[in-house]
């Protein structure tokens, strides 16, 4: 099992993310989460104010104007995975690019010492 090429591991993680967000998310629990439930039980749920992004086409993990619940949520999930991946990878690229060559010594520490 060892020595699976890096490319395959990366593809595996990416496919897992797409399947989980695009398909499995439909079967997630619809109950309020821990904080929401506590706020309801303790009586401060009504202090929540309107969300500034409530008119986003994907607000609430549902795609606007898509009636089918499975498709609407799945599409929102896939869009989220792609956007997060693009921003995350872009940020990493920028952070690494700024690194001066002299700081790259960490890349070499796994080479044989002798």
């Amino acid at each position: 099992m060892k020595n699976v090429p890096t490319k395959w591991v990366l593809v595996g993680v990416g496919v897992a993310a797409l399947v989980l967000a695009g398909i499995v998310s439909f079967y997630a629990s619809g109950s309020p989460d821990g904080l929401t439930k506590v706020s309801e039980d303790k009586g401060f749920a009504d202090t929540e104010t309107a969300h500034g992004s409530k008119d986003s086409p994907f607000a609430g993990y549902a795609t606007k104007d898509v009636g089918n619940e499975r498709l609407s949520g799945g599409l929102a999930g896939v869009v989220g995975v792609v956007v997060v991946l693009a921003l995350g990878a872009g940020l990493v690229y920028v952070v690494r690019r700024r690194t001066p060559a002299s700081d790259r010594s960490t890349d070499r520490e796994h080479e044989p010492v002798d």
Partner: peptide, 13 residues
């Protein structure tokens, strides 16, 4: 980047 995407996906579950 993939870890970020994976965390996003699992947070939906």
């Amino acid at each position: 980047g993939l870890v970020a995407a994976f965390v996003f996906a699992v947070q939906m579950l």
